[in-house]
Amino acid sequence: MAELTSLLSNKVVLALLGLASFTYFILFDLYFASPSQGWEVKVRNWQTGLLALISAQPLLGLLGTIQGLLDTFEFISIFEVLSQQAIMSGGISNALITTKLGLVLAIPSLVFRQLVLFKLKKQRGHS
């Protein structure tokens, strides 16, 4: 439970979750909407924006990792600790969580975007 609290106190993690939630909302809205001519226009209009939103997810994860590593090295440089190896391994482990989260959130977004495009292609075939 402490790990979850620590994770949710990270501003990059919160930004990642917010960005992914917004991206998934748009994708769900596009995928589950009834196909029509207006729907096709909406799907086409969102394609560039969706790619930007999806691409930002792993980049935000990397930003979190960089910030976590910087925080770890700053902590080590300020405090003379007996076991710097334990501090470093714990800090690096926590830092890498944001990269993992960014990838875990981006991959389903890409798959779901492709499903929306398949639905658009299928709709055009029936028109």
Score class of each variant (00 low, 15 high):
Met1Ile: 09
Glu3Ile: 14
Leu4Val: 08
Leu4Trp: 04
Thr5Pro: 13
Leu8Pro: 08
Asn10Phe: 03
Asn10Ser: 04
Lys11Gly: 08
Lys11Asp: 01
Lys11Glu: 09
Val12Leu: 12
Val13Tyr: 06
Val13Met: 09
Ala15Glu: 04
Leu17Trp: 02
Leu17Asn: 04
Ala20His: 05
Phe22Pro: 08
Thr23Cys: 10
Tyr24Ile: 08
Ile26Asp: 09
Tyr31Asp: 01
Ala33Tyr: 06
Pro35Gln: 14
Ser36Glu: 00
Gln37Asn: 10
Gln37Tyr: 03
Gln37Phe: 03
Glu40Pro: 15
Val41Lys: 04
Lys42Asp: 15
Lys42Pro: 12
Lys42Leu: 14
Lys42Val: 12
Lys42Glu: 12
Val43Leu: 11
Gln47Pro: 03
Thr48Pro: 01
Leu50Cys: 06
Leu51Glu: 15
Leu51Pro: 11
Ala52His: 07
Leu53Ala: 14
Ala56Gln: 12
Gln57Tyr: 09
Pro58Ile: 08
Leu59Gly: 00
Leu59Gln: 05
Gly61Phe: 12
Leu62Val: 05
Leu63Lys: 03
Gly64Trp: 09
Gly64Gln: 06
Thr65Tyr: 05
Gln67Met: 14
Gly68Ser: 10
Gly68Asn: 09
Gly68Lys: 02
Leu69Ser: 00
Asp71Tyr: 08
Thr72Asn: 04
Phe73Trp: 02
Phe73Lys: 09
Glu74Pro: 01
Glu74Leu: 00
Glu80Lys: 15
Glu80Met: 13
Leu82Thr: 14
Ser83Ile: 03
Gln84Trp: 07
Gln85Pro: 06
Gly91Arg: 00
Gly91Tyr: 00
Gly91Met: 00
Asn94Pro: 00
Asn94Ala: 11
Ala95Ser: 07
Thr98Ala: 01
Thr98Val: 07
Thr99Pro: 02
Gly102Ile: 01
Gly102Val: 05
Leu103Phe: 02
Leu105Cys: 13
Ala106Tyr: 03
Pro108Leu: 04
Ser109Pro: 13
Leu110Thr: 04
Phe112Ser: 11
Phe112Ala: 07
Arg113Gly: 03
Arg113Tyr: 03
Leu115Lys: 10
Leu115Ala: 12
Phe118Pro: 14
Lys119Pro: 06
Leu120Asn: 01
Lys121Thr: 12
Lys121Leu: 07
Lys121Ala: 11
Lys122Leu: 05
Gln123Gly: 11
Arg124Trp: 06
Ser127Asn: 13
